[in-house]
Amino acid sequence: MSRLQLHDLVWSKPMTEIARQFGLRDQHIAKACDGVDIARPRAGHWQKIEHGKSVSRSALNNDRFGAGDIVAIDASGWSISRA
Rank of each mutant, 00 (worst) to 15 (best):
Val71Cys: 01
Arg20Ala: 15
Gly35Ala: 10
Ala72His: 04
Met1Tyr: 15
Gly35His: 03
Ala75Arg: 08
Ala83Trp: 08
Pro41Thr: 05
Arg20Gly: 05
Arg3Asn: 15
Ser81Ala: 11
Ile80Ser: 05
Leu4Trp: 11
Ile49Lys: 13
Ile73Gly: 01
Asn62Pro: 02
Pro41Lys: 05
Ser58Glu: 12
Lys48Glu: 09
His51Gly: 06
Gly52Asn: 12
Pro14Met: 03
Ile73Arg: 01
Ser2Lys: 10
Ile70Phe: 04
Ala30Tyr: 00
Lys48Gln: 14
Ala83Gly: 11
Gln47Lys: 14
Ala19Thr: 03
Ile70Asp: 04
Leu60Ser: 07
Asp26Gly: 01
Ile38Phe: 02
Arg40Lys: 10
Asp69Ala: 10
Ile80Val: 13
Asp37Leu: 03
Ile18Met: 07
Pro41Met: 04
Arg82Trp: 11
Asp74Met: 01
Leu24Trp: 01
Ser79Gln: 11
Pro14Phe: 12
Arg3Thr: 12
Gly44Asn: 05
His7Thr: 08
His7Met: 10
Asp37Gln: 09
Leu6His: 11
Ser54Cys: 07
Arg64Leu: 05
Arg42Glu: 08
Trp78Met: 01
Asp34Ser: 00
Leu9Asp: 07
Ala75His: 06
Ala67Val: 03
Asp74Lys: 01
Phe22Lys: 13
Trp78Asp: 00
Ser2Gln: 09
Ile29Thr: 02
Lys53Ile: 05
Asp74Ala: 02
Gly77Leu: 04
Pro14Ala: 14
Ser76Leu: 05
Lys13Asn: 13
Asp8Glu: 15
Ala72Glu: 07
Asp8Phe: 14
His51Asp: 03
Cys33Met: 02
Gln47Asn: 10
Asp8Pro: 06
Ala83Thr: 06
Ser54Leu: 11
Phe65His: 12
Leu24Asp: 01
Ile18Phe: 10
Ala39Phe: 03
Val71Ile: 06
Pro14Gly: 09
Ser79Asp: 13
Gly66Trp: 07
Arg20Glu: 15
His51Phe: 07
His7Trp: 15
Pro14Glu: 10
Leu6Ile: 15
Val36Thr: 04
Ala72Val: 10
Glu17Leu: 11
Ser12Leu: 11
Ala39Gln: 08
Lys31Ser: 02
Ser12Glu: 15
Trp11Arg: 06
Ser58Lys: 13
Ser81Cys: 10
Thr16Ile: 15
Arg40Ser: 00
Gly68Ser: 15
Gly44Ala: 05
Arg64Lys: 11
Asp26Tyr: 07
Val10Ser: 01
Gln21Ile: 06
Gln5Phe: 13
Ile38Thr: 04
Ala39Leu: 05
Asp37Thr: 07
Leu4Arg: 13
Lys31Leu: 05
Arg25His: 14
Ile80Gln: 00
Arg42His: 06
Arg64Gly: 05
Pro14Arg: 09
Arg40Asn: 01
Cys33Ser: 06
His28Ile: 02
Gln21Gly: 01
Lys53Gly: 07
Leu6Met: 15
Ser81Trp: 02
Asp74Phe: 02
Gly52Leu: 06
Cys33Gly: 03
Pro41Phe: 02
Ala39Ser: 10
His28Phe: 02
His28Val: 04
Gln47Ser: 14
Gly68Tyr: 05
Leu60His: 07
Met15Gln: 14
Thr16Ser: 14
Ser76Gln: 08
Arg57Ala: 12
